Simulated assay, not measured.
Amino acid sequence: MQKLNLALAAILVVSLVSHTMEAKAQLNQYLISKIESFHLFVDSLKILASSPGKKFTLPNRGRPSRLSSTGRRGRCSDLKEPFIALIPHFLEQTQDENVVSALGKTAQSEPVFWFYVPKLPQDVRKLEFRLLNENKEAQKYILNLTDTPGIVGFRPSLHQKLKLNQQYHFTASIIYCDSDISKNPTVDSWVERVTLGDSLENQLRGATAEKRIELYSKNGIWHETLTLLVEKHQENPNNPMINDQLVSLLKDAGFENIANKTNIKYYILSTQNN
């Protein structure tokens, strides 16, 4: 009888230890999930605090641009949506018509350029980008498109860096027709490298990513604002605050149709010089 009691006691102890370990593991998992949720909440508060409802400052001047591939004659593509260059823009009224005027400002000598690429056929996967200086000398790049539709960015390794206070014309084409490139879906616009000024430089120095986004947005520095936001989105893809900021930025820049799309993808491509 004594042996039976000892055996039962041993079984009870093992059962208690097992249940205790299981409960401890469950508690640890619960605490980890709560800590992750807390960090996500803190990140959201940081972003909210750094975004006091101020819209992106549009440029007060621009250059005639073709930001959308729609309306081109003789196209050889069958895109369901337009290919779009993501550059802040506004309408300028001329004697005959309203003209889309656009200009992307950057402080960098090699900024990231952004486009909305619609769903493409499986056999269409290349994009050609050309950057022209004031002498119309072109630097050409070929990009391999990996996943569409989505918002695509890339930072070209320029042979000639952007010079301060100069505007550069750029074009981008999705390569459908090798035989007649004029029929490819094409967009074009302008970029200018600007001087930030001592005050803004001092504010940016040592600032958090959230604060830098706020400062760039307030001062109309488009390329850095969008790039930093996309990088934050990639770090925290489930953060609704960051997603809301991206939506607001795209709307401020005049791209409501894109901003209203759900589950949109953002990615940065590598380039091949040509």
Rank of each mutant, 00 (worst) to 15 (best):
Q2H: 11
L4G: 09
A7M: 11
L8D: 14
V14W: 10
S15L: 14
V17I: 14
S18K: 04
H19S: 15
M21S: 11
E22V: 13
K24P: 02
A25Y: 10
L27N: 10
N28D: 13
I32Y: 11
I35A: 12
S37D: 10
S37C: 03
H39N: 11
D43P: 01
S44R: 07
L45C: 12
L45A: 11
I47Y: 07
S50F: 04
S50W: 03
P52W: 05
L58T: 02
P59S: 02
N60K: 11
N60W: 02
R61N: 12
R61C: 09
R63E: 12
P64D: 06
S68R: 11
S69M: 04
R73G: 15
C76V: 07
C76R: 08
D78W: 04
L79C: 01
K80Q: 13
L86A: 06
E92I: 11
Q93G: 04
Q93C: 08
T94Q: 09
T94G: 04
N98H: 13
V99R: 10
G104D: 06
K105C: 04
V112Q: 08
Y116P: 00
K119G: 09
Q122A: 15
R125F: 15
L127N: 00
F129Y: 09
F129I: 06
E134K: 10
E134T: 10
E134I: 07
E137P: 00
A138N: 04
Q139C: 08
K140D: 09
K140N: 12
L143M: 08
N144G: 13
N144C: 10
L145R: 03
L145P: 02
T146S: 14
D147W: 02
T148S: 12
T148R: 03
T148Q: 05
V152E: 02
V152S: 04
G153Q: 03
R155E: 10
S157M: 13
L158F: 03
Q160L: 12
Q160P: 00
K163N: 11
L164W: 08
L164E: 12
Q167F: 09
Q167Y: 10
Y168Q: 04
H169Q: 11
A172F: 01
S173M: 05
S173V: 06
I175A: 06
C177P: 00
D178Q: 14
D180Y: 05
N184Y: 00
N184D: 05
S189C: 10
V191Q: 01
E192I: 06
E192W: 03
R193C: 03
R193L: 08
V194W: 00
V194T: 09
L196N: 02
L196T: 04
G197P: 01
S199Y: 10
L200D: 01
L200N: 03
E201N: 14
N202L: 09
N202C: 02
L204D: 02
A209F: 05
R212K: 15
E214W: 03
W222L: 03
E224H: 07
E224L: 07
L229I: 05
E231N: 12
K232P: 00
N236C: 05
P240D: 07
M241G: 03
N243A: 13
N243T: 14
V247Q: 11
L249G: 00
L249W: 00
L250C: 05
D252L: 06
A253V: 04
G254E: 05
G254R: 04
N257M: 07
A259V: 07
A259T: 07
K261H: 09
K261C: 04
T262D: 09
T262A: 08
I264F: 05
I264K: 04
L269Y: 07
S270E: 15
Q272H: 15
